[in-house]
């Protein structure tokens, strides 16, 4: 009996350890959600009404009907999804080449490190050159500019993650596919990719989150509603005269949803993808 009790106590102890971490991580989210549902009077009341207040959807109406947040949401969605797809296609092919073909002069290794090194300097360094390039290409204030920049930004990440997944996959399988009469590309599509699908899913989630949340380049490269994404749109509510906390919180709360849904949908793959290769099957 004593043993069982100890086990139960241990189980509770685990939650005790988790609570501070959860509080720390989720408190701002809770704060944001409540602000988005509070009237302005409640927002600034002291002490703040933590749990009991009269909820209102006014800010949501304001954000998505009166103001153009719906458009920002659409921009964000198009830019994130497109750049994620581009980065996955290009990066996966590159990673496959790096793991499966032997390049001269030890280029496999050099190229991999070179690709990684593009993520080593602070992003702001490239902001001005990118702004000038996009201006000359007449791509300022277009979704295309953000898709291009995010694809470039996510590529090293995709290449490195996928490289690991490919390296863990036995070569026999592709070789069998080749001997069976399939082309390289056919073997990649029919045999290799289905087997690294969990890795691909995990990588996709990360790319999407990074693109969805990106602020710096979106701020530099878009100034009009035509291509402005949610993070920039939200920040834009901090004006010289007032800060629209309710609208900002409402928009930010909505911005949470797609990523949350996507991550939950791929949760199974996400965990498998991140631990793939850790345990040899």
């Amino acid at each position: 009996m004593g043993h069982k009790k100890a086990q139960k106590a241990y189980k509770w102890f685990r939650y005790v350890l988790l609570v501070p971490a959860l509080l720390f991580a989720l408190a701002p989210v809770y704060w944001m959600l409540t602000i988005s549902l509070k009237s302005e009077v409640d927002q600034f009341a002291t002490p703040p009404p933590w749990f009991v207040f009269t909820p209102t959807l006014d800010h949501y109406y304001d954000a998505f009907v009166t103001r153009g947040f719906g458009e920002y949401l659409l921009n964000s969605a198009i830019v994130s999804v497109s750049s994620t797809i581009c980065a996955l296609v290009i990066g996966t092919l590159a990673a496959y080449a790096l793991t499966r073909f032997e390049l001269p002069w030890r280029l496999n290794r050099h190229l991999s490190l070179w690709i990684l090194s593009t993520r080593m300097f602070p992003a702001i360094v490239t902001a001005v050159p990118l702004f000038l390039m996009m201006r000359d290409l007449r791509l300022l204030n277009t979704r295309a500019s953000l898709i291009i920049v995010y694809t470039a930004f996510n590529l090293p990440f995709v290449v490195w993650m996928m490289r690991g997944f490919f390296a863990d996959l036995p070569r026999d399988l592709e070789e069998a596919a080749l001997v069976d009469g399939d082309s390289r590309l056919g073997a990649l599509v029919r045999v290799v990719l289905p087997l690294v699908a969990p890795g691909l899913a995990a990588t996709a989630v990360f790319c999407l989150i990074i693109s969805w949340n990106e602020f710096l380049f979106a701020l530099v490269l878009t100034q009009t509603d035509a291509a402005m994404t949610l993070p920039v749109g939200i920040a834009g509510r901090v004006t010289q005269y007032e800060i629209k906390w309710g609208v900002m919180s409402a928009a930010a709360s909505v911005a949470l949803v797609p990523i949350l849904v996507f991550a939950l949908a791929l949760q199974k793959y996400l965990v498998r993808g991140l631990s793939l290769g850790a345990v040899k099957g």
């Binding site: 026999d172 399988l173 070789e175 069998a176 001997v179």
Partner: peptide, 19 residues
């Protein structure tokens, strides 16, 4: 290239497609 040599191979690991 391999796919045009019209051979069949049995691998030591069998290399069956797991999916």
């Amino acid at each position: 290239p391999t796919q045009h040599r019209d051979l069949a191979m049995v691998f030591q690991s069998y290399a069956l497609y797991p999916h």
